[in-house]
Every structure is written in C-alpha cells, then in structure tokens.
Design a protein around this nucleic acid. Structure first.
Length: 901
DNA sequence: GGTATTCCTG
DNA sequence: CAGGAATACC
C-alpha cells in the first residue's frame, strides 16, 4: 500500500477506534446487563454465583447487593467483556485468533494495530462516518480490511480498558486465558458462538458474493461511491457510510429490515463496504479472482498463476471480512439478547434516543465506567451503536446478514417455542426501535425467560454450528487455496444468492440474507462444515464440539502466525500462494497450464521452499486431524488432489472408491485435478521417480489410508501430464473414477512385473483390463508397454547371458539346460521381477524361461547371433508362450492378495 | 502419420 | 526404469 494508504489507515483506525468504543458501550449498555440478568436468571441461577465471581473482575459498583443486581452486573461485565473482546479480542480462541490475525494482517499491511488502537481511542466519535469511510477504504485496500477490523479491537480497548482496567492487548491475552471463558461461560460463549456463526455466515455470504460478482478491477478510487450507492440501493438509509451508520441505528429503530439491509449492504457488499468502497473494487476484484480461480482449477491452471498476488490480497480481505463478520455476528447476538431481554431498558432507550450526539462520549464513558449509566442510553442507542459499530468497525461485515440470521434463528426458535415467537417479534420491533414495543416486551420478558433460555440454547447451538462452519471454511481456505476456492465455488453452487454477483452488489445483500435463515445452515455454508443446524434442530452439539476443536486448532494455528503467515496461508490455500508458499503447489498448477511458461514461472518461486512461511503452528496436527486436513494441506495449496492420486496406486489400494479415505475423497473433490495435473505435467516420467519419493510421501502422509502405495504412487500419474491431454486431466478428476488413478504407481510396476511371469507380451487391451484402476491414456499405455518392453529386454539379456555362459561352460546340448527355482538364471530373474520374493513364481514361467534359454543356446550355437535380427525368431517363439494371467491381477488389490498368499 | 518394438544410453 | 533414436508395421 502506498504511504497515503497508511496514513489513511491510521486515520481510519483512529476513527474506527472511536466507533468501536461506541460499540462497546452499546455492548456494555444496560440493556445487555438486563439481558444478561434475565439470561442468567433463566439460564442458571446456580452458575450465576460463579459467573458473578468471574465477572467480579469488572467492578460491580452499581449493581445492588441483590442477586439480580449482581447478575446484571455480571451480565454487563460479560457483555462488556464480550464487546471489549470483540473489539480487542474475543475470549474465544477463534475470536482471539481472528483478532490476532487481523492485527497481524494489519501489521503486515503496514498499519500498526497498536498505533491504531492508541490513536483510535483518541479519535473523537465525531468522525464515525469518516471512520467508516476509512474502514471502507482500508477494506478496499487489501490490507485495509484488517485495519477496519483492527479498529474494532482497538475501540474496545478504550472503553474496555477503562471499564475493565485492562489494556487492550493484555485483555486480548487474557481473553485467551481460560478464566474469561469461564466468566463468559454460557452467555458469553453463546454470544461469541453466535457471532462466530454469524461471522461465518457473513464470510460465506461475502465469499459467495465475491464469487457471484463478475471479476472487477480493483477499484482504488470509486469504492466509496460504490459502497454508498450500493447502500442506497439496498434501501437502507445509507447514502453515505457515515450516514449509513447513524442511519442504520435509526433505520433499526424504524424497521429491522432496513437495519438489516443497511447493514447487509455494508457488510455483504461492503464488506465490501468497508473494503468497500473498497468492496466495490475489492469485492469485485476478489470475485474476479475467485471466479477465475474456479475456472482455472477446473479448466486450466495457467490462470491461477496469473493472479496470485491478487488472490492473496483477496484472501486477506476475505479473512478480514470474516473476522469482521464474526464480530458483527457477535454484536448482533448481543443485540438480540438485549432485545429479547431488554424490556427494562425501554425507558432508557427512549432517553438514549434523545441524544445520539451525546452518545458518543457517553457511550464510551458508560461502557467503561458503569453499565448502569450505559443503560440510560437505551436500546436505540444500542442499535445505533450497533449500526455504527457494524458499519464503522465492521463496515465490511454485513450487519444485515447478521440480523437476518439472528432473526432467522429467533424465528426458528420461536417456531420451536411459541413463546419465543413473541419474543422474536418483539426483537424485530425493537430493532425497529419501537420503544413502545420494548415496553410491552418487558411485561413479556418475564414470561419469556423460559423462551429466552430456549433462545439462548438455540442461539448457542446455532452459534456453535456457525462457528464450526466458519472455522472449517476458514481452515479449509487456509489449508488449501484451492479448497478455499472450492469452498467459494461450493458456496456459489449451494447458495442461490451467490449466482448473480452483480445483482448481489446492489440488492444481493438482502436477498441472501432473507433466505439465509433457511439456507444458512447447510446450503450457504456449503462447505461440509456448514452442515450447521442453525435451527438447533439438528446437531448443534456435535457441531459444537467440532467447532470448538476446530477453533482451538485454528487458534493454535492462526494465532501464532502473524498476518504474514496468515497471508501466506491464505495465499497457499487460495492457490494465490505467496512466492514462498507457492513453492509447492503453484508449480504444479502452473505446469499444467502449459507445461509452459506461466506455470513454470510460478514454480520458480516454489523452489525456494518457504521455510519461514509455514509456522509450525500451522501444521498443527490437531487441525489436520480435527479438520481432516492433512498437515501437508496447509503447506500445499492443493493437498487434496494430491491425496487422491497417491491412493490410487493400484497395488495398495484400491478399491476403487474405497481406496480413498472418505475424507480424502472429499478433499479431492475440491481441487485434486489441479494438483495432479500440475504434478503430472511437471514431472514427466523421469520426474515421476523423483516425485515419487517426495510427492508420494506427501500423499501418504496426507492420506491416512495406509495404502500400500508407497510414496511413489504419484510418479506415474505425472505421465499423464506429459501426454498433455487436458481431457486426461479432466478425467483424472478425483471423482471421476471411483479410484482410478491417473498415473502408474510403484505398485502398478510391481504388479506388472509379477504379470510378466505370466505374459511377456501383453496387449494394450490386456493391460487395460488388468490395470483397471488406472485411467488409461496414451502416456499410461505407452508406459505400461514400455515397462514390459524393459522387462523383456532384461529377460532376454539374461537368457542370452546364461546361454553364452552355458556354452562357455561346455554345455553341448540344449537339453542339458534346465531352469529350476534354484537356478542362477531364475534367481536373477526372480530378483528382478520379484525382488521381495513374496510372490510364488508360476512353474509355467520356469518352463518358458527354460525354453527361452535353450532357444538362445541353440541360436548361438548355430551361429545365428551373427544376424543382427537373430533374436527376432526367438521373440516370435517366446511370445507364443504367454499364458493367461490370473484373474487376481485384475483386482486393484491384487498385490495385497498375491503377496499375502 | 501413428503405433509398437527394439536398441542404446543414462 | 525412462528417454531417445531407429526401425518395422499398419
């Protein structure tokens, strides 16, 4: 980024900080406290004490001695924490990770989080709009997103730090620490999870949008305008980002829909928005890249090479956006809770509405100083704050999406519980900012609490699912660029909204969201991870666990890695590959393209294996294990494809589809082809051997399956590339053949050698029959034929050698020559074709060998060897001695069977 | 012209 | 064991 960008970033950050602070307040606002109280009351009274204790960290000051008061305090604290966390760092590992990532990214970008935070707090609230713009700008910039995100954390710091007395950074650290989680316990966790879920959703949506959108040139300038336009289009109030934020708040009051939409545009599009204006450019750009990538993967690898950097940036942006989304989601969740439980706050809300201007200062103070004071702000303020926060801080994120999701969730819950329905409606109304309804709610609130619990549970479940999905998606993305792409693709396919990018830009946000509730769970998040059951119908728990694990893993991986690592990961994953990262994956891809230049060019970077890029943390087994990703995947953008091939090795595996481990297959789906292709293209037969070692090893590791294939399995696959048939590549597609391998593996070679005991002159058709697990193409066929040719060569050489030896030894009659299992000739042959001697050579082979030896003996004795083509007669004889190859060899697993026997 | 095989080389 | 060249066959 140019210097000016950095400066802008700083300004943005400062602004953002402000915004964040304001947001924090909102979070910390009394409403939250009440919500907390209600939640706690309903949720667990027993836990309350503990939580209080935990929460005690925050000053209880206001709350009365009453348990309720304590609870409220606790809730407030929790909320504050959550807010502070959101801004600073999420208590969740994932959140923390994200925050860290964002920070790291920022750092990479050149922006200094710390500096921002410090300055950010400083910035006055007056520039919220600007802050938004800045965010959008920053978001626009690839790096900028992080900046926007970063602000979030920073903002809280001021409030959080003041309120909590923690410095933002420490808070982050602390947040990671277990104690906080404890404090947060159910409620915070729920919120966090919700936010995560939302964030995931938002990410997915963003991704989808990006996918859908036609590739755009990065817009440096018009982003803001675009954003504003989009926002306007969306209908929400936002003519401008600044207006939007405030307007959002208002809009929320007026109508939840508006709020959502406004948010949506900003978040979705904008995530755009913040990236926003950037989005306009950034998103489009991303989209373009994504689209290109997809086609590239599927169609050709060359394109991939072209836009590495762009992809990287996009990935960064996406990551940032995701983080932002997550934060937004969390906020939304909080809001929901507030709405649900806030009946009390109604009064305050009205008051709060009176002065938005004051809010800025008050909020900060309130958030920091006392929750009670915050209450005075009222729901509206919260909304406003929310809107601001979302727009300002998370401008990129789509608050609308979150809201929609939240609504959907609420609705679902309502469906589950009639009581809840009312609550939901109330929420919406609250969103609308109808203070009156809020008041009504209060009355209901008491009754609701039961519903509130349910809601909380449902929200938790949904959050868990969403988090898990998000984590999965993120991890996948990181793990392999292609995967990420695939995910994106998947999202597209899955998400109806995704299809039209352009449409999405203007109105896309709302539509996607609207459908989200229903779609969200599975379809949207497309990635298998998505399987969330937002409704909570399903498997929240399993998902939850998975999510947690994933989060941990993710956290482990990500947290340590600075943005660089992140970017590297993203690049790796995306396939954009930073030069370092790309080392492995890209080359392959490139190769494919043309054998040519583009790919190769990329490769160069690869060679210098990126030692630093890969953080040890990245490889963490846990992730791979939990996620199912193989560690290599992280390194290799295209791990999946590779995995598939290795397994394919005839010997081991096989078993058709069975050969692949389920997980592996799934991975392959994403983008195995590219990998294989590239590899194949890259390494020809010659290379195959070399590759066999390295690649195969990778495959092996990746593939949990213990296929016999050694590391070499892949080598042969490369041949295909040589053939250069795109079709082949396409065919290679991991899925196409259940377990059909593109190339020949060492096992295949071994199998061929064993087959040589039966047939010295196999026909191509015969080979196809017996190597059914291999996808035959010219190259493969030629290679197999070449193998047998080589076998024959060795065979005849040995025959001639021993025939002459016999002659030299004084053997006069061919009859004297016999080939037994103890014969030196046989041992030589067996050593060559059955080195392990784990296969029982058929007697027929001994007979043929004896015949061959005698033919050579006779020919030599007869002096026929003078004729240059004297061996042809012998070949002609021997070729007739081929015997049927046992059916066993037709089985891909024949080696295992044969060897075991 | 393409394929298959052999021979030679590494 | 693969690549390349040469040769033979279709």
């Amino acid at each position: 980024m140019p210097d000016h960008d950095s400066t802008t970033l700083l300004t943005r950050q400062t602004k953002r900080r402000r915004v964040d602070i304001g947001v924090k307040r909102t979070v910390g606002s009394p409403i939250f406290t009440r919500a907390r109280e209600t939640l706690f009351d309903s949720m667990n009274q027993s836990h309350g004490s503990n939580q209080d204790g935990d929460c005690s960290l925050v000053s209880h000051g206001h709350s009365g001695t009453n348990s309720d008061g304590e609870k409220s305090n606790v809730l407030r604290k929790l909320l504050k924490r959550a807010n502070s966390y959101e801004d600073t760092i999420m208590p969740f590992p994932g959140a923390t990770i994200i925050s860290q990532l964002l920070k790291n990214n920022i750092g990479k970008n050149g922006g200094s989080d710390s500096g921002f935070q410090g300055s950010g707090a400083l910035s006055s609230g007056g520039s919220e709009i600007q802050a938004e713009d800045a965010c959008s700008n920053s978001s626009r910039d690839q790096d900028s997103p992080s900046d926007c995100l970063s602000p979030g954390p920073p903002l809280p710091p001021s409030s959080s730090s003041s309120s909590f007395g923690r410095p933002p950074p420490p808070s982050n650290l602390n947040s990671h620490a277990p104690p906080q989680p404890l404090c947060l316990s159910s409620f915070d966790l729920d919120r966090l999870s919700d936010e995560h879920l939302r964030a995931k959703r938002a990410r997915v949506e963003n991704i989808i949008r990006g996918m859908s959108h036609s590739p755009l040139v990065r817009p440096n300038g018009s982003d803001h305008n675009q954003e504003s336009n989009r926002e306007n289009e969306n209908s929400s109030n936002n003519s401008t980002s600044s207006n939007d934020h405030r307007g959002d708040g208002n809009s929320h009051n007026t109508s939840s829909h508006n709020h959502i939409r406004s948010n949506c545009p900003s978040s979705l599009l904008s995530s755009p928005g913040s990236r926003g204006g950037v989005v306009g450019v950034g998103e489009v750009y991303r989209e373009n890249k994504r689209k290109q990538r997809l086609p590239q993967q599927q169609h050709s690898f060359t394109q991939l090479v072209c836009s590495r950097q762009e992809q990287r940036q996009e990935e960064r942006r996406q990551l940032k956006l995701q983080l932002e989304d997550m934060q937004k989601q969390l906020r939304q969740l909080q809001e929901k809770f507030y709405q649900i439980y806030d009946s009390e706050t109604e009064e305050e809300e009205e008051n709060g509405e009176s002065g938005e201007v004051d809010r800025g200062g008050e909020r900060e103070e309130d958030g920091n100083l006392s929750e009670d004071s915050i209450r005075s702000d009222g729901l509206e303020e919260r909304h406003r704050d929310r809107g601001r926060h979302s727009h300002d801080e998370l401008s990129e994120l789509d608050p609308g999406l979150f809201l929609d999701r939240a609504r959907a969730l609420l609705r679902e819950q309502a469906l589950l519980d009639g009581d809840i329905e009312e609550d939901v409606d109330g929420r919406e109304e609250e969103e609308d900012r109808n203070g009156e309804r809020v008041m009504k709610r209060r009355g209901e609130a008491a009754g609701r609490r039961g519903g509130g619990r349910q809601l909380a549970e449902t929200l938790k479940q949904e959050l868990n699912c969403a988090v898990s999905q998000v984590v999965d998606t993120v991890v996948k993305g990181f793990s392999s660029p292609k995967q990420a792409v695939s995910h994106h693709l998947g999202c597209h396919s899955n998400t109806p909204a995704a299809p039209s990018s352009s449409s999405n830009s203007s109105s896309s946000c709302p539509p996607p969201f609207g459908p989200l509730p229903s779609l969200t769970p599975d379809s949207r998040f497309g990635s298998g991870a998505l399987a969330l059951t937002l409704n909570g119908d399903g498997s929240p728990t399993p998902n939850y666990h998975s999510s947690n694990q994933r989060l941990h893993c993710f956290g482990d991986v990500i947290v340590p890695s600075p943005l660089d690592s992140f970017s590297g990961l993203s690049g790796r994953l995306s396939g954009v590959h930073t030069p370092n990262d790309q080392t492995e994956a890209l080359p392959l891809v490139v190769r494919k393209n043309g054998g040519g230049g583009g790919g190769e060019n990329i490769h160069p970077s690869l060679p210098p294996p990126p030692p630093p890029p890969h953080h040890p943390s990245l490889h963490p087994s846990p992730l791979t294990a939990s996620l199912g990703f193989s560690p290599p995947s992280f390194r290799h953008p295209f791990p999946l494809p590779l995995m598939g091939y290795p397994f394919q090795s005839p010997l081991g595996s096989h078993g058709g589809g069975a050969g692949y481990p389920p997980g592996a297959k799934d991975h392959h789906r994403s983008s195995p082809d590219s990998m294989d292709m590239t590899r194949e293209t890259v390494s020809l037969r010659t290379k195959m051997a070399a590759l066999g070692g390295g690649h195969l090893s990778h495959h092996h590791h990746r593939q949990s399956s213990p296929s016999q294939h050694g590391p070499e399995g892949l080598s042969l696959s490369l041949i295909k590339s040589e053939c250069g048939d795109l079709q082949d590549i396409a065919d290679i597609s991991p899925y196409s053949g259940s377990t059909i391998q593109e190339g020949l593996s060492p096992n295949h070679l071994k199998k061929a050698k064993l087959m040589f005991f039966y047939t010295r002159y196999p026909s191509s058709n015969m080979l196809k029959m017996y190597f059914s697990d291999v996808k035959f193409n010219r190259c493969i066929t030629s290679q197999l034929i070449k193998w047998f040719s080589n076998f024959r060569e060795f065979y005849y050489i040995q025959m001639e050698k021993f025939a002459r030896q016999a002659i030299n030894e004084g053997v006069t009659a061919a009859e004297e020559l016999s080939v037994g299992r103890d014969a030196e000739l046989f041992r030589a042959l067996n050593m060559h074709y059955n080195k392990a001697n784990d296969f029982e050579v058929p007697d027929r082979f001994l007979e043929v060998a004896q015949v061959t030896l005698r033919e050579f003996f006779n020919a030599i004795v007869a002096g026929k060897d003078a004729d240059p083509s004297w061996k042809k007669a012998i070949y002609k004889v021997i070729c007739k001695l081929d015997s049927e190859v046992p059916e066993v060899f037709k089985s891909p697993n024949c080696l295992q069977e044969l060897l075991h026997d």
